[in-house]
Protein backbone atom coordinates (compact mmCIF):
# COMPACT_ATOMS: atom_id res chain seq x y z
CA UNK A 1 0.00 0.00 0.00
CA UNK A 2 2.61 2.46 1.09
CA UNK A 3 4.84 1.43 -1.76
CA UNK A 4 2.05 1.94 -4.27
CA UNK A 5 1.31 5.38 -2.93
CA UNK A 6 4.95 6.26 -3.13
CA UNK A 7 5.00 5.17 -6.77
CA UNK A 8 2.05 7.35 -7.62
CA UNK A 9 3.75 10.26 -5.99
CA UNK A 10 6.96 9.53 -7.84
CA UNK A 11 5.14 9.90 -11.09
CA UNK A 12 3.84 13.33 -10.15
CA UNK A 13 6.45 16.07 -10.67
CA UNK A 14 7.75 17.57 -7.45
CA UNK A 15 7.90 20.95 -9.14
CA UNK A 16 5.53 22.02 -11.86
CA UNK A 17 5.85 25.46 -13.46
CA UNK A 18 3.18 26.51 -15.93
CA UNK A 19 3.72 29.58 -18.07
CA UNK A 20 5.56 31.46 -15.33
CA UNK A 21 6.21 35.14 -15.98
CA UNK A 22 8.05 37.61 -13.84
CA UNK A 23 7.90 41.29 -14.62
CA UNK A 24 9.92 43.88 -12.70
CA UNK A 25 8.89 47.52 -12.72
CA UNK A 26 6.41 49.07 -15.12
CA UNK A 27 6.25 51.39 -18.08
CA UNK A 28 9.46 52.16 -19.96
CA UNK A 29 11.66 50.61 -17.25
CA UNK A 30 9.75 47.34 -17.25
CA UNK A 31 11.88 44.18 -17.31
CA UNK A 32 10.51 40.81 -18.32
CA UNK A 33 12.83 38.66 -16.24
CA UNK A 34 10.85 35.54 -17.07
CA UNK A 35 8.50 35.35 -20.02
CA UNK A 36 6.64 32.05 -19.99
CA UNK A 37 8.59 29.28 -18.33
CA UNK A 38 7.22 25.73 -18.34
CA UNK A 39 9.13 23.19 -16.30
CA UNK A 40 8.60 19.83 -14.61
CA UNK A 41 11.12 18.56 -12.10
CA UNK A 42 10.84 15.14 -10.54
CA UNK A 43 11.92 14.12 -7.11
CA UNK A 44 15.57 13.11 -6.97
CA UNK A 45 16.65 14.94 -10.10
CA UNK A 46 19.93 16.84 -10.32
CA UNK A 47 19.29 19.68 -12.72
CA UNK A 48 21.75 22.30 -13.86
CA UNK A 49 20.57 25.68 -15.10
CA UNK A 50 22.80 27.41 -17.61
CA UNK A 51 22.52 30.67 -19.45
CA UNK A 52 24.08 34.08 -19.91
CA UNK A 53 24.12 36.67 -17.21
CA UNK A 54 20.83 38.49 -16.83
CA UNK A 55 18.87 35.76 -18.59
CA UNK A 56 16.64 35.14 -15.58
CA UNK A 57 18.29 32.15 -13.89
CA UNK A 58 18.27 33.66 -10.42
CA UNK A 59 14.73 34.90 -10.87
CA UNK A 60 13.69 31.37 -11.75
CA UNK A 61 15.55 29.95 -8.76
CA UNK A 62 13.91 32.46 -6.42
CA UNK A 63 10.48 31.52 -7.65
CA UNK A 64 11.18 27.79 -7.35
CA UNK A 65 12.55 28.45 -3.87
CA UNK A 66 9.41 30.37 -2.85
CA UNK A 67 11.49 33.47 -2.11
CA UNK A 68 9.57 35.29 -4.79
CA UNK A 69 6.18 34.99 -6.45
CA UNK A 70 5.57 34.85 -10.18
CA UNK A 71 3.74 37.78 -11.76
CA UNK A 72 1.76 35.32 -13.83
CA UNK A 73 1.45 31.59 -14.16
CA UNK A 74 0.99 28.66 -11.85
CA UNK A 75 3.50 26.93 -9.61
CA UNK A 76 2.64 23.59 -8.05
CA UNK A 77 5.08 22.42 -5.42
CA UNK A 78 4.34 18.91 -4.22
CA UNK A 79 0.93 19.28 -5.84
CA UNK A 80 0.15 22.43 -3.86
CA UNK A 81 -0.39 25.70 -5.68
CA UNK A 82 2.05 28.13 -4.06
CA UNK A 83 1.85 30.92 -6.65
CA UNK A 84 -0.66 32.94 -4.65
CA UNK A 85 0.36 32.00 -1.13
CA UNK A 86 0.80 34.50 1.65
CA UNK A 87 4.29 35.54 2.78
CA UNK A 88 4.15 33.64 6.04
CA UNK A 89 3.01 30.43 4.34
CA UNK A 90 5.85 30.74 1.85
CA UNK A 91 8.21 31.25 4.78
CA UNK A 92 7.06 27.96 6.26
CA UNK A 93 7.62 26.18 2.97
CA UNK A 94 11.12 27.66 2.67
CA UNK A 95 11.80 26.56 6.19
CA UNK A 96 10.70 22.95 5.83
CA UNK A 97 10.93 21.92 2.19
CA UNK A 98 13.66 24.02 0.68
CA UNK A 99 17.32 24.59 1.31
CA UNK A 100 19.00 27.53 -0.38
CA UNK A 101 22.72 27.88 -1.12
CA UNK A 102 23.91 31.23 -2.46
CA UNK A 103 26.98 32.34 -4.33
CA UNK A 104 27.71 34.87 -1.57
CA UNK A 105 27.28 32.29 1.23
CA UNK A 106 24.95 34.67 3.05
CA UNK A 107 26.07 33.72 6.53
CA UNK A 108 25.49 35.96 9.54
CA UNK A 109 28.94 37.43 10.23
CA UNK A 110 28.53 37.66 14.00
CA UNK A 111 27.35 34.11 14.50
CA UNK A 112 29.51 31.01 14.75
CA UNK A 113 29.29 28.23 12.18
CA UNK A 114 27.00 26.40 14.57
CA UNK A 115 24.91 29.50 15.19
CA UNK A 116 24.43 29.97 11.47
CA UNK A 117 23.54 26.35 10.87
CA UNK A 118 20.93 26.32 13.63
CA UNK A 119 18.94 29.35 12.40
CA UNK A 120 16.35 27.46 10.32
CA UNK A 121 15.55 25.25 13.33
CA UNK A 122 14.80 28.37 15.36
CA UNK A 123 11.92 29.06 13.01
CA UNK A 124 10.58 25.53 13.08
CA UNK A 125 10.20 25.56 16.83
CA UNK A 126 12.96 23.12 17.67
CA UNK A 127 14.21 23.56 21.23
CA UNK A 128 17.72 24.79 21.98
CA UNK A 129 19.18 21.41 22.98
CA UNK A 130 18.01 19.63 19.87
CA UNK A 131 19.10 22.56 17.72
CA UNK A 132 22.63 22.24 18.99
CA UNK A 133 22.65 18.46 18.65
CA UNK A 134 21.44 18.53 15.09
CA UNK A 135 23.66 21.46 14.21
CA UNK A 136 26.80 19.69 15.42
CA UNK A 137 25.73 16.51 13.68
CA UNK A 138 25.28 18.15 10.29
CA UNK A 139 28.54 20.10 10.66
CA UNK A 140 30.32 16.82 11.34
CA UNK A 141 28.81 15.45 8.18
CA UNK A 142 30.17 18.44 6.27
CA UNK A 143 33.63 17.78 7.70
CA UNK A 144 33.55 20.86 9.96
CA UNK A 145 33.43 19.22 13.39
CA UNK A 146 36.44 21.17 14.68
CA UNK A 147 35.22 24.51 13.32
CA UNK A 148 31.78 24.87 14.82
CA UNK A 149 32.65 27.79 17.06
CA UNK A 150 34.38 29.82 14.33
CA UNK A 151 32.80 32.86 12.78
CA UNK A 152 32.58 33.17 8.99
CA UNK A 153 35.55 35.58 8.84
CA UNK A 154 37.65 32.90 10.50
CA UNK A 155 36.72 30.31 7.87
CA UNK A 156 37.91 29.78 4.30
CA UNK A 157 35.54 30.25 1.37
CA UNK A 158 35.09 26.51 0.98
CA UNK A 159 34.36 26.12 4.68
CA UNK A 160 31.85 28.97 4.56
CA UNK A 161 30.05 27.34 1.69
CA UNK A 162 29.97 24.04 3.57
CA UNK A 163 28.45 25.86 6.55
CA UNK A 164 25.87 27.32 4.17
CA UNK A 165 25.14 23.85 2.76
CA UNK A 166 24.81 22.49 6.31
CA UNK A 167 22.31 25.26 7.02
CA UNK A 168 20.40 24.38 3.85
CA UNK A 169 20.25 20.74 4.85
CA UNK A 170 19.57 20.94 8.56
CA UNK A 171 15.79 20.82 8.25
CA UNK A 172 16.02 17.83 5.86
CA UNK A 173 14.49 19.61 2.86
CA UNK A 174 13.36 17.71 -0.22
CA UNK A 175 14.76 20.37 -2.55
CA UNK A 176 18.14 22.09 -2.45
CA UNK A 177 18.63 25.14 -4.66
CA UNK A 178 22.14 26.37 -5.31
CA UNK A 179 22.64 29.62 -7.23
CA UNK A 180 26.21 29.58 -8.55
CA UNK A 181 27.50 27.92 -5.38
CA UNK A 182 31.07 27.71 -6.70
CA UNK A 183 31.13 31.20 -8.16
CA UNK A 184 33.20 32.58 -5.30
CA UNK A 185 35.48 29.57 -4.88
CA UNK A 186 38.68 28.44 -6.52
CA UNK A 187 38.48 25.46 -8.88
CA UNK A 188 39.62 22.82 -6.43
CA UNK A 189 37.37 23.93 -3.60
CA UNK A 190 34.55 24.23 -6.11
CA UNK A 191 35.06 20.63 -7.14
CA UNK A 192 34.89 19.52 -3.52
CA UNK A 193 31.62 21.36 -3.06
CA UNK A 194 30.17 19.83 -6.22
CA UNK A 195 31.20 16.41 -4.98
CA UNK A 196 29.33 17.11 -1.77
CA UNK A 197 26.20 18.08 -3.69
CA UNK A 198 26.42 14.99 -5.87
CA UNK A 199 26.64 12.74 -2.84
CA UNK A 200 23.65 14.42 -1.34
CA UNK A 201 21.66 13.87 -4.49
CA UNK A 202 22.79 10.30 -5.00
CA UNK A 203 22.88 8.98 -1.45
CA UNK A 204 20.00 10.85 0.07
CA UNK A 205 17.80 11.48 -2.92
CA UNK A 206 17.67 15.22 -2.42
CA UNK A 207 16.32 17.03 -5.46
CA UNK A 208 19.09 19.37 -6.55
CA UNK A 209 18.78 22.41 -8.78
CA UNK A 210 21.96 24.33 -9.48
CA UNK A 211 22.78 27.42 -11.50
CA UNK A 212 26.28 27.29 -12.93
CA UNK A 213 28.42 28.81 -15.66
CA UNK A 214 30.83 25.91 -15.61
CA UNK A 215 30.05 23.34 -18.36
CA UNK A 216 32.08 20.68 -16.58
CA UNK A 217 29.98 21.02 -13.47
CA UNK A 218 26.83 21.08 -15.56
CA UNK A 219 27.89 17.80 -17.13
CA UNK A 220 27.76 16.16 -13.72
CA UNK A 221 24.02 16.88 -13.58
CA UNK A 222 21.43 14.42 -14.80
CA UNK A 223 19.66 17.17 -16.68
CA UNK A 224 20.52 20.60 -18.04
CA UNK A 225 18.32 23.47 -19.08
CA UNK A 226 19.45 26.59 -20.91
CA UNK A 227 17.80 29.90 -20.15
CA UNK A 228 17.92 32.90 -22.43
CA UNK A 229 15.94 36.11 -22.23
CA UNK A 230 13.64 34.69 -19.63
CA UNK A 231 12.80 31.55 -21.55
CA UNK A 232 14.00 27.96 -21.50
CA UNK A 233 15.61 27.48 -24.88
CA UNK A 234 16.95 23.97 -24.38
CA UNK A 235 16.19 21.09 -22.03
CA UNK A 236 18.13 17.82 -22.02
CA UNK A 237 15.26 15.98 -20.36
CA UNK A 238 14.17 12.98 -22.37
Amino acid sequence: MVKGLRLVMKNEPLILLEDIKKIYGSGPTQVNALSGVNLKIREGEFMAILGPSGSGKSTLMNIIGCLDRPSEGRYLLDNIDVSGMKDDDLASIRNKKIGFVFQMFNLLPKQSALGNVMIPLLYSGVDARERKERGLQILRKMGLEGRWHHRPNELSGGECQRVAIARALINRPSIVLADEPTGNLDTRTGEEIILLFKRLNKDEGVTLIMVTHNPEIANEASRRIYVKDGKIVEDTAP
Binding site: L67, R94, N106, Y123
Partner: peptide, 9 residues
Protein backbone atom coordinates in the same frame (compact mmCIF):
# COMPACT_ATOMS: atom_id res chain seq x y z
CA UNK B 1 18.89 35.63 5.38
CA UNK B 2 16.52 34.91 8.25
CA UNK B 3 13.52 35.24 5.98
CA UNK B 4 15.14 33.04 3.34
CA UNK B 5 15.52 30.21 5.82
CA UNK B 6 11.96 30.50 7.10
CA UNK B 7 11.48 33.46 9.44
CA UNK B 8 7.93 34.72 9.32
CA UNK B 9 6.95 38.36 9.65
Amino acid sequence: IRKAVGARR
